[in-house]
Amino acid sequence: MNRDNLMLILLFLCIIILSFINNIAFLFGYFLSITVFFLIIRGRVGTLISGILRVLPFLVVLSFAFYISSLLSKGHPYRYLVILNLRVFDMVLSLMFFREFANPLRALSFSSTLTYIFILSYSQIKTFTELYYDFSLVMRSRMVLDTSYKDRILFLRKMAGYFFKKAIARAEDTAMAMKARGFFLYD
């Protein structure tokens, strides 16, 4: 077990503990300490804001809806809302804290099979994402802006089909490459 595995286990423990505690002071203290860590010790304002922004729209809509429905039913929503929001922020920040320190690929590698699954998938996801952005540029550079529905469907078919074919070809080739490099010799 390496350092990153331990960090992942620690992250799971933190998240489990956070999900059992409904004490506002604790949740707020946790929030404050990670925020201070990001802002003062690491100077990562951008990381902090981007992490929070990712959940903020969902939380705002959810909180607002809950506030209105509580008012209508004459309930007291404040404690509920504070705990709910703090807990979400705490969990998101814990995950960011983990990503700041650990290499997620190594963290998930609890066995060699898992390591290979994650590396193969992640590197292929990266390749495919780059290809996808190239495709969007192609769409912009080769087509007029207001394309017809039929054109857009045809382009989508071309793109989805391309990735489909590429995925199969790549799986077959990767299997061969692994074989050529002796991957299956001792298993």
Binding site: L105, R106, S109, T115, Y116, I119, L120, S123, T127, R170, D173, T174, A177, M178, A180, R181
Partner: peptide, 8 residues
């Protein structure tokens, strides 16, 4: 060459 590489 991408497909031959599968180590961390």
């Amino acid at each position: 060459p991408d497909i031959m590489l599968f180590n961390p």
